[in-house]
């Protein structure tokens, strides 16, 4: 696998959307290519940071109670 192909598949690799075979190919490339590995780790980290930053918003308890009242 070339770096270009690896870059093409990086989103899907980070999102666990590749087939097992494809993922293995990417993994093998990453293990032998520090540049792509750096890119991968950065993307993975960015995804985690986005998740954790937006995650902390949860529905207020009063709103949850009100909905339960209305719906059930």
């Amino acid at each position: 696998m070339k770096c270009e192909q690896c870059a093409d598949k990086l989103d899907r690799y980070v999102d666990r959307e590749l087939t097992n075979t494809e993922a293995l190919e990417v993994q093998l490339h990453l293990e032998g290519c520090p540049d792509c590995m750096d890119h991968y780790e950065f993307q993975e980290h960015l995804k985690r940071v986005v998740k954790h930053s937006c995650d902390c918003d949860t529905a207020p308890k009063a709103f949850r109670d009100k909905l339960r009242e209305i719906l059930t």
Partner: peptide, 10 residues
């Protein structure tokens, strides 16, 4: 449905 409230609210 209410078990998915946080996802919807976010």
């Amino acid at each position: 449905a209410l078990t998915h409230l946080d996802t919807l609210y976010r």
